[in-house]
């Protein structure tokens, strides 16, 4: 009697187990499919841009002639000669502009963002912190065109007046400085929000450990909390720089579309890879159209390399061995 009952039990058990295993593998398959789907979209986009962007270098562009890749990468003038007749395009100076602007923007938004994050996470009273957190999240979700409008309505005027104070005639305020300010404003919320989360998630035990050693709150915040949150802070910098490199709309409204460069003076007009792609995209054809996809390839490569470098540094910094 007993043994029969046992047998029954074990059969039910194996059936249950089988059912679970089937559900498990179905779910796993589902995950796999969605992953492949989203990954293949990204790859599809990259392939599409690459195919379009490679045309100016491999065809004779309807008789105008091949674009030389070295000139393209190193030149200091966007287009030498007349549009639709010349193949002398280059983005060398624009690459420098783009990196320069993103770097300056981050130089402003990183310290402000991290300090704000520290304030929200550790210093501000609960209610104020809650309020600021909501504001930051709100700012992070504002579309870039709004920042662009603010930039052209307010920042351009400010920069124009500032330049005038230095006796410099700026082009209506369109400048490196205006672009940097707009991008700094745009990246600030993201950097603040992500840094804040990583600062807040630093263990209470570490904080108490520091205070118990006779460190002040300020010493604790700067020497222990920030160091403990550095990998999250670094992640915020990576996202920030991604946004600074990739932003097109807002930048186009304040950069001034310089056709040659690089523009290093802060009141000079400038241009970035994105603003160059965007400018006149709808009104042009032929080589002048295709070349914008080539700029797109360059942008993707620049972003990729920057990310690789930053990730490499992050791993180095995240590793305590450095210091």
């Amino acid at each position: 009697m007993n043994s029969i009952k046992h047998k029954g039990d074990s059969i039910i058990l194996t059936q249950k187990k089988n059912k679970k295993e089937i559900i498990d593998s179905v779910v796993r398959l589902l995950f796999l499919i969605t992953t492949i789907l989203s990954a293949s979209f990204i790859i599809l986009i990259i392939i599409f841009i690459s195919i379009k962007g490679i045309v100016p270098f491999v065809t004779d562009n309807n008789g105008i002639g091949r674009v030389d890749i070295i000139t393209f990468l190193t030149g200091r003038v966007w287009l030498t000669g007349t549009a639709f007749q010349s193949n002398l395009y280059s983005v060398g100076f624009i690459i420098i502009n783009t990196l320069y602007i993103a770097f300056l923007a981050l130089m402003i938004s990183m310290p402000i963002g991290v300090l704000t994050a520290l304030f929200i996470a550790k210093v501000a009273p609960k209610k104020i912190a809650e309020f600021l957190r909501t504001v930051v999240e709100l700012l992070a979700s504002i579309p870039s065109i709004v920042y662009g409008l603010f930039g052209s309505g307010v920042i351009l005027v400010f920069v124009y007046n500032l330049a005038e104070a230095f006796n410099i005639q700026s082009k209506g305020g369109n400048s490196v400085m205006a672009t940097v300010l707009v991008l700094a404003l745009m990246t600030l919320p993201t950097i603040t929000a992500i840094s804040e989360v990583s600062i807040r998630s630093v263990g209470k035990d570490i904080e108490l450990g520091s205070l118990a050693l006779g460190a002040t709150k300020t010493q604790t915040n700067f020497k222990v909390i920030l160091t403990s949150a550095k990998s999250g802070i670094f992640a915020s910098a990576i996202l920030g720089i991604g946004r600074a490199l990739g932003e097109a709309t807002a930048v186009s409204l304040v950069a001034g579309n310089a056709k040659s460069g690089p523009s290093l003076g802060i009141f000079d007009i400038t241009s970035t890879l994105t603003s160059t792609m965007l400018e006149g995209l709808k009104e042009t054809t032929g080589i002048d159209y295709d070349i914008r996809f080539s700029v797109g390839i360059i942008l993707m490569i620049v972003i990729l390399i920057t990310n690789l470098i930053l990730n490499f540094i992050k791993r180095k910094v995240g590793n305590v061995d450095v210091k």
Partner: peptide, 8 residues
Amino acid sequence: KPNPFPMS
């Protein structure tokens, strides 16, 4: 719980 700082 041991709470060393994430430093050297």
